[in-house]
């Protein structure tokens, strides 16, 4: 995945079953963002892999004041890349472990 300067990681062990998963997002490289992020804390949130889209969460983070409106696409892409990796892993690894 492209380095957006925004890091998104799993905030919990993925058991491969739950649709809702905890993620943690923080800014690694503020220079890659158009606006100045509110602070460089790690933002933890739950994401429903089946019902929600990264764009929804990114917009809510902008509305909450964490990021500038101009960075909503970068934040959404960062979340989307991590969600895609989680779903990739679930499709390939978990069936073998069942």
């Amino acid at each position: 995945a492209e380095d957006t300067g925004v890091r998104v990681e799993l905030a919990e062990e993925d058991d491969g079953r739950k649709s809702s998963i905890a993620l943690r997002l923080w800014v690694e490289d503020p220079k890659k963002l158009k606006g100045k992020p509110k602070d460089n804390g790690a933002i933890e949130f739950t994401f429903d892999l089946e019902k929600e889209t990264p764009d929804d969460v990114a917009q809510e983070m902008v509305d909450a004041g964490f990021f500038h409106e101009n960075d909503v696409k970068i934040v959404a892409k960062s979340i989307r890349d991590r969600v895609a990796l989680i779903q990739w892993r679930r499709e390939r690894i978990w069936p073998m472990l069942q």
């Binding site: 490289d29 804390g41 933890e44 809510e60």
Partner: peptide, 27 residues
């Protein structure tokens, strides 16, 4: 924990805590 802050937006809860130094890329 005084370093953790909870923010609600559009019904979603965001928990903000300091990023461990080890995870911040050297500027």
């Amino acid at each position: 924990n005084s370093l953790t802050q909870v923010v609600h937006s559009a019904g979603r809860r965001f928990i903000v805590s300091p990023v461990p130094e080890s995870r911040l890329r050297e500027q």
